[in-house]
């Protein structure tokens, strides 16, 4: 990809898939699926102190039709499982999923009859996030990881999933 031009403006040229990935990764609108306590950290991430808008993801849409990345923040119960899957199905392609916290990633400390042992049982996940709850830094790290994945085409949406597990980052 290249920036071409001079004083009266510029153009970006490059292969179409690269341009699309560049556009997509820098405007990832989240669908905040806040299911329990992790959602508080997600709100904090969206708020001014951590400010997810620095990475192009400020427009938290509570409508799945307008969002690109679903952040599953919290404990998914079996009662809620079908609803979460339906929300995922309603998102337009290409769509990505961040599983926030150990509950969403594996069921976490809830090993019982009520909780889905990992939302990846029902929804394809691109980035798993460690922590109970993950700090906002970790969620930002997950978002940056997802951006790199979109760049490289390593997502479920591009047919070459390579899920990552992220922590605080170094």
């Amino acid at each position: 990809m290249a920036f071409e031009g001079g004083e009266d403006g510029f153009a970006v040229t490059g292969p179409l898939d690269q341009l699309l990935a560049w556009a997509r990764k820098n405007s990832l609108w989240p669908m905040p699926l806040g299911l329990s306590c992790c959602a508080i950290e997600m709100m904090s991430t969206i708020g001014p102190r951590f400010d997810i808008s620095r990475f192009g993801a400020e427009v938290a849409r509570f409508s799945p039709r307008q969002s690109d990345v679903m952040i599953v923040a919290g404990t998914l119960t079996w009662k809620m499982a079908s609803v979460a899957r339906r929300i995922y199905d309603q998102m337009p392609n290409p769509k990505y999923v961040i599983s926030m916290g150990v509950c969403a990633s594996s069921g976490g400390l809830y090993r019982n009859y009520a909780v889905v042992p990992g939302v990846d049982r029902l929804i394809p996940v691109d980035v798993y996030t460690m922590g109970c709850p993950p700090r906002p830094d970790t969620l930002l790290n997950a978002l940056l990881t997802l951006q790199k994945k979109i760049d490289k085409g390593n997502t479920h949406a591009s047919g070459n999933p390579r899920p990552a597990v992220v922590g605080l980052g170094g």
């Binding site: 460690m130 990881t145 490289k152 390579r162 597990v165 992220v166 605080l168 980052g169 170094g170």
Partner: peptide, 13 residues
């Protein structure tokens, strides 16, 4: 079989 769990490294795409 996915990426190794690694809290210290973030660039695992």
């Amino acid at each position: 079989g996915a990426e190794p769990i690694n809290g210290a490294r973030s660039d695992t795409p």
